[in-house]
Every structure is written in structure tokens, then in C-alpha cells.
Design a protein around this nucleic acid. Structure first.
Lengths: 213, 213
DNA sequence: ACCTGAACACCGTTCAAGT
DNA sequence: ACCTGAACACCGTTCAAGT
């Protein structure tokens, strides 16, 4: 039985599935091949190497975002919608998130979100260098938020040794007095808090040209 | 010649050096051992496994930050100083940055920066949940900024195919009209821009209790 | 054009043996 | 306590051979 033909798409899908099931470290060409019931080397007919495969995984995940942009909405709502759409990655593909965020995408997959974001920023009165700066600031915030949510991000505010009695109250009075708040994290609420703060900061930005339509 | 004795510190230092010279992918227990002139298995007398070694690398890099906090300074200057100190990682250990940012640190290495940040935020009038939220927002921004600077971060604003003629002006009018600005990036200026915006946003935050001293 | 097994140069880690 | 080589179960990728 020939089953389905081996394609790049099937290979990438198998990789995404494997990553979500067992984590990025579990991915190997051999395991993916085994999962698809083919020899390892068959993969190389559709993908040049492992690195390119991981790139394709990142691109595929990024393409899965539903960017339903309403150009007629207020710019702040468009910003919200786009930021939330991006955050959806952390929900739908938590273990692929690091891949998406941690590698240069050389395709048009990353260009469409940028295009929409820039259009939105223009609608908010940001032109040229200001638009690019605002975009970059937003991306930094969103990327950093996703990393925290996905649990790869640092030190700070991890659950385990922060149960008040775990930290030395003499050395770290602030941390230990806020231990409860630091060890719990409502990712959506935190994300929304920063998002609103950034939007307010954009509204207050002096360089902005008002009322562009 | 017995040379120096093998220690955890020497192993970690060799790992940091190797990462900065050849990238994180080049790190292997065998290569580090070879670099130190010992057998592979000797490493395991000082480090339980590779993952723990990478954790130690992250911790070491994080400890290298010079946090010279002046509790007498205005809170906004303390915030600036701490954010810039963190960004210094990207300068001094660019290829270790992903490691620092992308893994949970279970030690006190990450606790000291948090302690200082919370003390600063208290000085700015943020207590309890507000302080934690502000801290998390700042960390997200800083982490995201470092990733961009270190070149691991996504899609957006990479140099290569963004030279105006590279992108389809019909499909991506905004991107192609801003191609020049998007392909250049003064990391320090971008970082400072967002930093000032966030500080202004903090000043404007309504939940803040004024004049705490 | 697509698939494949054998082979090569690597991995991390266990174990038993040394000092 | 510290070091070590041999061994095991893995890697990614090249190559020559098949269809």
C-alpha cells in the first residue's frame, strides 16, 4: 500500500505534531521519517536539511495565525486584534513558539503581519521612522510576552522556589513579600495590561500626527 | 603536567567561550572536554549533564551584569539603568543571550535583578499587583528587544530581502515604501525609544500612588 | 523524479575500572 | 574523590544504488 505520497507539507506537519507532543528536542530527521513510515533519506527529497525543516515549521505556524484585520475599525482596536492574533500562537503551538520567535524567517510569511501593522500605524498617525519604531516596540513586547507565557523565559516569576518560605526574606525583602503575586501569572491578564499601557503610550506620543484618515 | 584542576567554573567558562566563538549549536560535551584537555566523562564529575551545564552558562552570564543601583536616584533613572544593564548581555554575550532568555533559572541569579526592580517600582509608587505587572511588562519588552538585537528574532525587519526591489510593492505597499527604514536598525536607539515610551506610560498610569518616598 | 540502505563522523550518557 | 576508555543508543548527512 503506497499510502499517501510523501510531500513537504506532510513532513512539516509531522514535525509540528512531534514538537507539540514531545518538545523541540525530540525532533530528529529519523523520528520524523519513522513517523511517516519512510526511510530517513526520503525526507531529503523534499527538504534540504534539518535547519530548513525547522524554518518551514516556523513559517507554517506563523501562517496559521488568523489575522482578520478590519481597516474600518479604530486603530487601537486593530492593534489589539493583531497583538492578540499573534499571542494565539502561544496557545495553539506552545512548543513551536520558540522556533517561530527564535529564527529569522526569510519568506513572505512574516511580511504580511508587518504590512498590516504598518497600515494600522499609518492610520494611527505614525509615518516613516515613527511607524517603524512603534512596530519594533510592539514586536519586542509581544515576543517577550510569548516567551514568558510559553514558559521558556527566565528566572523571573517562575512558580517553584518562590513560595515565600523558599526565598530569604532578609536578602530579598521585596521578592519575598510579593512571592504570592510573583508565582502566579494570569498570562492573558498580564498581556492585556501591557497592551493597554502601550496603546495609551502611543496615544500620548507627541510625534504623532493627529486625525489622519 | 597536571595543569589546573578541573572545576565547574572552568567547564562553564569553556562553554561560554565556545558558544561565543562558534554558536550554541557547536557546544557538545565532547568538544568542551577536548578544549580543556580532559576526557569527556571527567566533566560529569562536576556537572550532572549537558542541560545543567547550559543552565550554569545562563546563570553565569546573568551574574555578569553590573547592576549598580543608586537607591537615591529618581526612579525613572533607576529603571533606565537596570534596563540598560540587562541589555548589556546582548553586547557582551550575544550568542549566549538566547540561553539566558530561553530557560528557566532556578537559582538566586535571577532573583537579585527582580529584587532591585521591585524596590525601584515601589519607589515609583507601584505596590503589590501593580508592581508585579509593571515588572513583567518591562521584562517582556527587554527580553523581546534583546532577541531582536541578537538577531534571532523573527521575520520582521531582517536585512536581506528587504531592499525595496526585493518585496512586491503591489502586495506589500507599506513594507516596500518603508524598506529602507525596516532594513536598518540602530539597536541602541530603538531600545531607548521604547524604554522612554514605557517610562512615560508608567508616569501616566492612573493606578500609581504619587510621591512615595 | 523519487526512494533507499549502508556508511561516516559525530552526539549524550551508563558502566565498570582505575587512581 | 576524581578521572577515564569502552560501549550503547542515538544523531545529520553523503553517497552510490536502485525504481
Amino acid at each position: 500500500m503506497p499510502s499517501e505520497p510523501l510531500t513537504r507539507g506532510r513532513i512539516v506537519a509531522a514535525a509540528v505534531g512531534l514538537i507539540e507532543r514531545e518538545g523541540a528536542d525530540a525532533v530528529s530527521m529519523r523520528r520524523i521519517a519513522a513517523e511517516l513510515g519512510v526511510g530517513v533519506m526520503s525526507l531529503y527529497n523534499h527538504v534540504p536539511n534539518k535547519d530548513a525543516l525547522l524554518g518551514a515549521v516556523a513559517e507554517t505556524v506563523l501562517n496559521q495565525i488568523e489575522f482578520t484585520d478590519d481597516p474600518g475599525a479604530h486603530w487601537s482596536d486593530r492593534v489589539r486584534a493583531q497583538a492578540r492574533a499573534f499571542r494565539q500562537i502561544a496557545h495553539d503551538y506552545p512548543r513551536c513558539t520558540m522556533l517561530v520567535v527564535g529564527r529569522q524567517l526569510h519568506s513572505t510569511a512574516g511580511l504580511l503581519p508587518v504590512e498590516r501593522a504598518l497600515a494600522t500605524l499609518r492610520g494611527a498617525g505614525f509615518e516613516g521612522a515613527d511607524a517603524v519604531r512603534m512596530l519594533r516596540m510592539f514586536i519586542a513586547y509581544v515576543v517577550g510576552s510569548l516567551l514568558r507565557e510559553v514558559g521558556l523565559t527566565p528566572a523571573f516569576a517562575q512558580a517553584r522556589p518562590l513560595t515565600a518560605q523558599g526565598v530569604d526574606a532578609e536578602l530579598f525583602p521585596e521578592v519575598s513579600s510579593l512571592a504570592g503575586l510573583l508565582s502566579a501569572c494570569d498570562h492573558e491578564a498580564e498581556f492585556e495590561f501591557g497592551l493597554e499601557l502601550l496603546i495609551k503610550a502611543m496615544e500620548a506620543y507627541e510625534g504623532r500626527r493627529e486625525g489622519t484618515r
